[in-house]
């Protein structure tokens, strides 16, 4: 996949990304619009000693519609904060956000996401805001659970599920709402290898089957990049680089080897 707008940004001076690029990018013959767009986002909080602690420093991102992107970076670099700002859970100190709706946010810990005690009822919880018939709700729940491979678990108590299964229930809840944007915060943190692959494939599948669905996935694992269309790398509250997954992977691996060489020398 060719990403002509691959951008590398200096670590010290973070310029707004795509400052000269219009809101839609012409790629080949196809006009590409953005499902997620954040410009010059800054976020800080004030401590009890009235000190201003910056978390995000002039972050700008753009994610095209119908793609699966990943957000990477070391602990504390501001990935989850950026995701919460995109979801509307936090208000940025400055900057603008534009995310297509309806959007859905899936938390890192599935115990925090699952609201109701039984699987099917929880998946249907998000549909409570829409006026639907029971048959429509049942159909959506069934399709969402099928997409994440949990068709046989409809009547199971959430508490009896494994971490990976709970995580898939959380994703099914987001899929049932037929959201256009999925914001996913480190879903594979508590999962073993097979569950990690199961969850990531479920998201990939939902993006592939619906051209309107865009997913942004926060992760620490480089091997997950093989499922992504593109990626963003953050450090110290700044977007360092964004582009296609292979380039980001090469970039991170080069940094890792440089760091190891520095230690060994």
């Amino acid at each position: 996949m060719n990403f002509p707008y691959l951008t590398s940004i200096s670590e010290r001076v973070v310029a707004p990304l795509y400052a000269t690029v219009p809101a839609t990018i012409i790629r080949g013959n196809k006009a590409e619009s953005f499902a997620i767009e954040g410009r010059n986002l800054r976020f800080s909080f004030t401590t009890r000693q009235t000190q201003d602690v910056p978390v995000l420093r002039d972050c700008s991102i753009r994610i095209p519609c119908g793609q699966f992107w990943m957000l990477l970076g070391p602990n504390g670099c501001g990935k989850s904060t950026l995701l919460k700002i995109l979801a509307g859970l936090l208000t940025p100190t400055s900057g603008t956000v534009n995310v297509n709706g309806p959007k859905s946010f899936v938390f890192q810990n599935p115990d925090h996401q699952v609201v109701l005690p039984t699987v099917d009822a929880d998946v249907a919880f998000g549909l409570g805001k829409i006026d639907l018939t029971h048959d429509e709700v049942r159909s959506r729940v069934s399709r969402a659970l099928h997409a994440v491979g949990l068709s046989d678990y409809m009547k199971r108590s959430v508490q009896t599920l494994s971490g990976g299964q709970k995580q898939r229930v959380a994703i099914a809840g987001a899929l049932a709402e037929a959201c256009k944007v999925l914001l996913l915060d480190e879903l594979t943190t508590f999962l073993d290898e097979s569950d990690q692959v199961g969850v990531i494939k479920a998201v990939r599948n939902s993006v592939d089957t619906s051209p309107e669905v865009t997913a942004l996935w926060v992760t620490h694992r480089l091997e997950e990049l093989e499922y992504a269309d593109g990626a963003i790398y953050m450090e110290d509250g700044k977007v360092v680089m964004q582009g296609d997954a292979a380039s980001i992977r090469s970039f991170i691996e080069a940094r890792q080897s440089a760091y190891i060489n520095q230690i060994n020398s």
């Binding site: 979801a87 859970l89 859905s104 938390f107 919880f125 998000g126």
Partner: peptide
Amino acid sequence: QAMIVRGF
């Protein structure tokens, strides 16, 4: 917070 995100 999850309830709010999910539309409650």
